[in-house]
Design a protein around this nucleic acid. Sequence first.
DNA 1: TTCGTTGCAAAAGGTTTGCATACCA
DNA 2: TGGTATGCAAACCTTTTGCAACGAA
Lengths: 145, 145
Amino acid sequence: MEDALIKEHPPSWRSTRQRAAVLLVLRDAATFVSATELHAALTADGAAIGLTTVYRTLRVLERTGHVDVMRDKTGERLYRPRPADGHRHYLVCRRCGHSRPVDADSVERWAESLTASTGFTEVEHTLELTGVCEPCQSGGAPSPG
Amino acid sequence: MEDALIKEHPPSWRSTRQRAAVLLVLRDAATFVSATELHAALTADGAAIGLTTVYRTLRVLERTGHVDVMRDKTGERLYRPRPADGHRHYLVCRRCGHSRPVDADSVERWAESLTASTGFTEVEHTLELTGVCEPCQSGGAPSPG
DNA sequence: TTCGTTGCAAAAGGTTTGCATACCA
DNA sequence: TGGTATGCAAACCTTTTGCAACGAA
């Protein structure tokens, strides 16, 4: 992800130790993570980085389309690197937080069809899916994080 | 809406001047409104009510399924009375805030089918749709609120 | 009279901003 | 060297909570 980001997108993306650290941790995230969690993981890894910088970096990544954002029930923002194939919807386990992209083509098409049926233009959509993943159904409930 | 709420739902819903005022304003809402806006409208109408009470009343209405909730881009919660026919998805105009329920049966079915295709159970979904409504396309942009 | 409800002020929690300093290019 | 990026502290906002007073049933 770093390469794509550093070479392509930003108006002026300056490569710093802090940003590299964020990208590194984010790249391996199998679940949506909050800014706070990300910051905790970074400092636990020994990285010296301010929470403000984490927020600012995530905002850039969001603007450049490198991360997808969703909100949990409390309204907290959660981030996850956007897959290269451009998937944009995820099914998130309510027990362990694990997320997996889902094929939402039918929803995309349906959303587009709304333009014709409602008269609304520039229709955009946000879809958040939660459930309980197979591992969490059988075994106990792995704790989030 | 008042009748339905007062007679059916609550474990113990006590009818008060403040709650009646909230229900009255909310009933006529054609758009999603925030707790703050609701409170402002109420006090503008001359009602004496605390912001805390507005929040608490909305929480009860949310729990009892009398209002639908969505979040705007800033994460603020917006409320709207739930139609009697149980529609639960809305298309909201980004310019003026007007919202209309949409038929999302196909999405509902698709979401249910995820259980089979992903192994996730108890799949729940949140869908937020925005666009620009016809009046806002032609004329200028009516201001929100 | 009882117990849910109200409202103020304060706390909480996440996110943003001001500003001086550090540092990449 | 110039202009970004950083980081601390403080500001912001929405939402929740503590607690004493109020009021519906």
